[in-house]
Amino acid sequence: MSILVDRETRLLVQGITGREGEFHSRAMAEYGTQVVAGVTPGKGGQTALDGRVPVFDTVDEAVRGTGANASCIFVPAPAAADAILEAADAGIGLVFCITEGIPALDMLRVYWVLRQAGVRLIGPNCPGATSPGQAKVGIIPGSIHREGAVGLVSRSGTLTYEVVQAMSDAGLGQTTCVGIGGDPIVGTSFIDVLDMFNQDPETEAIVMIGEIGGDEEERAAAFCAREVRKPMAAFIAGRTAPPGRRMGHAGAIISAGGGTAESKRAALQAAGVSIADSPSQIPSLLRAAGVR
């Protein structure tokens, strides 16, 4: 089993005819994901991916025409918040938004509208999710994965790839890898994904990759202490980050008295999570916790 994406996922790509959208749609389809539709306003009736995928003007038409049940968004930041709402309006229950740089106040409204509509949003500013051997949605390179029993959740992109690669090299495969995004307001929190992994019978252990800023990791630690009985390992980036500066990700900023790597490490450690000093230590921490 896995979480969020699998063989049944029927994916729609919003922005499929753009450079990024086209490139990654191709990679998703090659990995085995069912890419069933694309949406680019004004290009309805055309096709993408060498004629294999129909393109629609609106998400509504795409859903009615193809039975798409998930969407992946590659549209530019000024139009991305609206694209998320369009997907929710059309009845899509699971939306991945890869786009970086959406204004926080736009995301705030989107967050609450989707929550009230019962739509699951992953991101924005996230790399997506992969269930190895089944499907990948987003931009995570498929080649780094291996099928297995570890669930991974992360706030970052390439750092996630680093850890996944280290795990796969060490023979530790994954059920699903999820990047929740580095923005201050994201649709899905660490706790949401930890809860899914905790309930997924095939996920035997969980890896969490956090970074400075906010208190999501601290809240996740409280959840782990209370609910999670599976072995866990974590890495927190930004021990050397200076306070008050935005470290690339809009969410990665140490503000007065909070959000430091040390406070996150301490909270997770107290919750029984093994803490890595380097991404390369994650596999050995998992082995030490009894993961085969």
Partner: peptide, 17 residues
């Protein structure tokens, strides 16, 4: 010089380590 913000922070951390 790193690609990705999270990996850039992790790289700084490992330099320090």
């Amino acid at each position: 010089m790193v690609n990705g913000a999270g990996l850039a922070m992790a790289t700084m951390d490992l330099v320090k380590l």
